[in-house]
Simulated assay, not measured.
Amino acid sequence: MTADQRLLLVHAHPDDESIGQGATMAKYVREGRGVTLVTCTAGEMGEILVPELEHLAADRDDLLGEHRQGELQDAMALLGVRDHRFLGGFGHYRDSGMKWHDDGHAVAADEVHDNAFWRADLTDAADLLVEVIREVRPQVLVTYDQFGGYGHPDHIQAHRVAMYAAQLAAVPSYRLDLGEPWDIAKIYWGAMSESRMREGLRALRAAGDTTTFEGMDPEGPMPFFVVPDEQLSAVVDGTDVVDRKMAALAAHRTQISVDGPFFALSNNIGAPAWGLEFFRIAKGVPGPTGDEGLETDLFAGL
């Protein structure tokens, strides 16, 4: 990694990165900044949207993780990201799975694999990431909020591991066998703007689409992953590379349908639907802001 400015992203499963920060990643790669992705599991417990690949499911051939590894490689090639890794190596941690709570958010499944990421020892997992942090030496880290966006146990664990590893990596006397200490200057949690989500839903409903994000009322309560605009700190405008993000989403074909909500929203309200990616700052000093009072670059002020 030779770029002067370097971004590290920590995500739970293949496809999470393209959904949350695909445009940011593509934009920064194009600008010559360093982008490193760490994925914590291979998503072995995910649902499969492609009928002819249903045999890969965990309760059948249990080969979905290997297949999603290939999907991730394809997605990263489309975004231009050359440095992408699995935490501890491929297969070190397994997707924990999930179920839906009556309140509409994800919770841990009734049965969790012995090697599930949800069961990982926090310090052991953090140490694996400390080594990456001290190697890459990023100025900016992006991960989930404390709820993992919608409660998925692996998203929550990825948040915990990323935040703890960032602290440990900066301690001058901690585990010097893992590399020279490095303090990450700014940490962000990915977010979705409430006003943009409502705007998108209104456009969908006005176009006669009542099935995309079914049950969500543009004037009603928003899901857990939607964040009030006053809590947002930064927005990265990747509308000029949003085609790469949409291509990366399509590469995750077992998980994301081209007829699904991501593409429906983009088709109805255009590139800003997924080209503008929002963030909450969790550590560091915000830099100069744009017209909307938000940083327009995660490296602002550094």
Rank of each mutant, 00 (worst) to 15 (best):
H155K: 09
Q139P: 00
D114M: 08
H159R: 10
L72S: 14
H55R: 14
L72T: 08
D61P: 01
T143I: 06
D102M: 10
R85F: 03
Y150A: 14
D59F: 08
R160P: 00
P138T: 13
D62M: 01
V140C: 13
P51Y: 03
D154Y: 11
L87W: 00
H55W: 15
D124S: 12
Y144S: 14
D59I: 03
A125M: 07
M76F: 00
D127M: 09
H67F: 15
D114H: 13
D121G: 12
G80P: 02
G89A: 12
A120R: 01
G148K: 04
A77C: 07
G70W: 00
I156Y: 14
H105F: 08
D114R: 13
E66N: 12
Q139H: 05
E131S: 08
L64M: 06
F86M: 15
D59C: 06
A57P: 00
L78S: 05
L64G: 07
H67P: 06
Q73C: 09
V81C: 09
V81T: 05
L63Q: 13
W100R: 12
Q139V: 02
G80M: 03
H55V: 13
R82Q: 13
L64I: 02
R94H: 14
L64A: 13
G104I: 00
A75R: 04
H101K: 13
R85G: 09
L78F: 01
R85Q: 15
L64F: 06
H105K: 07
V142M: 06
D61E: 13
T123K: 14
E47A: 12
D103M: 03
Q73N: 11
Q146V: 01
L53R: 03
A109V: 03
G97S: 12
R160F: 06
Q139Y: 03
D61F: 00
K99V: 02
G97T: 08
G88M: 08
H113C: 08
F117M: 12
R60K: 14
A57K: 10
E52W: 01
H113I: 01
V142W: 03
V142L: 13
A120E: 04
D124L: 11
D74S: 08
Q157S: 10
A108N: 06
E47K: 13
H55K: 15
R60W: 00
D127H: 05
A106W: 00
T143K: 06
H152W: 04
G70M: 01
G80N: 04
Y144T: 10
L129G: 04
A120M: 02
G88C: 10
L49Q: 14
A125E: 11
A125R: 05
D95C: 05
Q73M: 10
V142F: 03
L129I: 01
